[in-house]
């Protein structure tokens, strides 16, 4: 049982309607891997933000592209990779919004990647060949 690794993978196309697929998939995953409702919501949010960015900004042609989500559970640690063949883009390089500004001063937008960082323990990016690989990690907790 020590260091047992379980892997699940889902392939999606670059359309926002796939967010529903992701949400349903995560609910099934939560059942199988015994993930709590609040924990699953955090995963859903992080994945929505990352996936939406890829769909909205990743592709300059009108072709259909495949986006892979890979989930890996290693004891109480969860690793998620998003793999797409869009233009090179490292979201980890963006600066966080200043959350202490007033409503008047706050810019509309720019929260997506910030939320990913906050929802997950660790986020890293690699360009591997013609793919963007965004990796996220989170220790499985009850909330």
């Amino acid at each position: 049982m020590e260091n047992q690794v379980e892997t699940k993978k889902i392939l999606l196309v670059n359309q926002l309607k796939e967010l529903e697929t992701i949400s349903q998939y995560l609910e099934e995953l939560a059942g199988g891997w015994d993930l709590s409702v609040p924990f699953t919501m955090k995963l859903t949010l992080a994945l929505e933000e990352a996936f939406t960015n890829i769909v909205n900004y990743g592709f300059q042609d009108d072709e259909s592209h495949e986006i892979a989500l890979v989930f890996e559970k290693q004891n109480n640690r969860l690793f998620i990779s998003l793999i797409d063949d869009g233009i090179p883009y490292d979201p980890t390089l963006t600066t966080d919004p200043d959350i202490n500004l007033s409503a008047e001063e706050r810019k509309i937008g720019g929260l997506g990647i910030f939320l990913i960082r906050k929802m997950m323990d660790k986020v890293s990016y690699q360009r591997i060949g013609k793919n963007n690989v965004l990796k996220m990690e989170k220790t499985i907790t009850p909330n």
Binding site: M41, T44, L115
Partner: peptide, 19 residues
């Protein structure tokens, strides 16, 4: 039940408009 950054921005837009 759920809100992502795409929804949060609308809350902020409403606040800015009302201010």
């Amino acid at each position: 039940d759920y809100v992502s950054s795409s929804g949060l921005r609308v809350f902020l837009m409403a606040q800015k408009k009302l201010s």
